[in-house]
């Protein structure tokens, strides 16, 4: 039986923009994934613990408030410190191009900036999953 891909979609920090994550969550669901949504105003600690309790394969972080440089890498570090460094961490939102490579250096697998087609995210995850990177 094929494993079902599980994805946590989390909003970090003081940011009440939910349309992006809602649209993404539905696109991932329609692609056959189980999407855990944990709501607004999450701290990196909450996100890391949630990812572990839910045993997701992928953590998708959203930030539209400009705090991504601080918060995104914290999630990566916390996951590694808690023994869950194998989870794929991706990010999205209002993220200037010059920040993208810095975030990738800090362990973010991919950054999807404003205007990304949700189908591209689905395709990216499907490819990652099919390549076997997500094997437990």
């Amino acid at each position: 039986m094929p494993r079902t891909l599980r994805v946590l979609v989390a909003k970090l920090g003081l940011d009440a923009h939910t349309i992006g994550v809602t649209v993404l969550a539905r696109a991932l669901r329609d692609a056959g994934m189980e999407v855990i949504y944990s709501g607004l105003r999450q701290t990196p600690e909450m996100v890391a613990n949630t990812a572990i309790q839910e045993d997701v394969d992928v953590v998708g972080l959203s930030s539209l408030s400009g705090a991504h440089m601080k918060h995104f890498p914290q999630v990566v570090e916390l996951l590694a410190a808690k023994g869950a460094g194998e989870k794929l961490v991706i990010g999205g939102g209002v993220i200037p191009d010059e920040d993208v490579s810095a975030l990738k250096e800090k362990g973010m697998a991919e950054i999807f900036t404003m205007g990304t087609d949700t189908r591209d995210v689905v395709k990216y995850l499907d490819t990652w999953w099919a390549d076997g990177d997500g094997a437990p």
Binding site: T4, A25, R26, L28, R29, D30, A31, G32, M33, E34, V35, I36, Y37, S38, G39, Q42, T43, E45, M46, N49, T50, Q53, E54
Partner: peptide, 26 residues
């Protein structure tokens, strides 16, 4: 239709996300 799901129950429970004595699973 898709076999996928959106699991949102824990949105209401996140105040317990950092409590070691509570384990929440969707």
């Amino acid at each position: 239709f898709s076999g996928g799901a959106i699991l949102g129950d824990r949105v209401r429970m996140q105040e317990h996300a950092t409590d070691e004595g509570a384990f929440i699973r969707s």
